[in-house]
Amino acid sequence: MSLSAIIVMLGSMVVLWGVANSALIVSMRRQERKLALIQSQGGFEPFSPRAFQDLQQWCDQHSDHANIAEVEALLQQQEEAMKAYPQRFY
């Protein structure tokens, strides 16, 4: 088997099997963490700090947008979760 074929084969294994298995393991572990937080304190904050920042920025820039109420409600939900749940998921 040629060296280039070996490199492509190994690279494909890493890019596909490596990524798929890592994604599966990380996803399962994070879900376990979420469930542990729900069991210990009743919930967790739904947005990461960056996602929360995006929501805030959007609200600041679109104060008269038709969907402002929806985004504001999400911001409020996040703030309430931050107050209610001392242990953070993100």
């Binding site: 798929a20 599966l24 996803s27 879900q31």
Partner: peptide, 18 residues
């Protein structure tokens, strides 16, 4: 509050190709 980007996006597409 279930994840989508990692499971529904990356794992689904890359896992399928795997």
């Amino acid at each position: 509050n279930d994840d989508i980007p990692l499971g529904g996006g990356i794992f689904t597409a890359v896992g399928n190709t795997s």
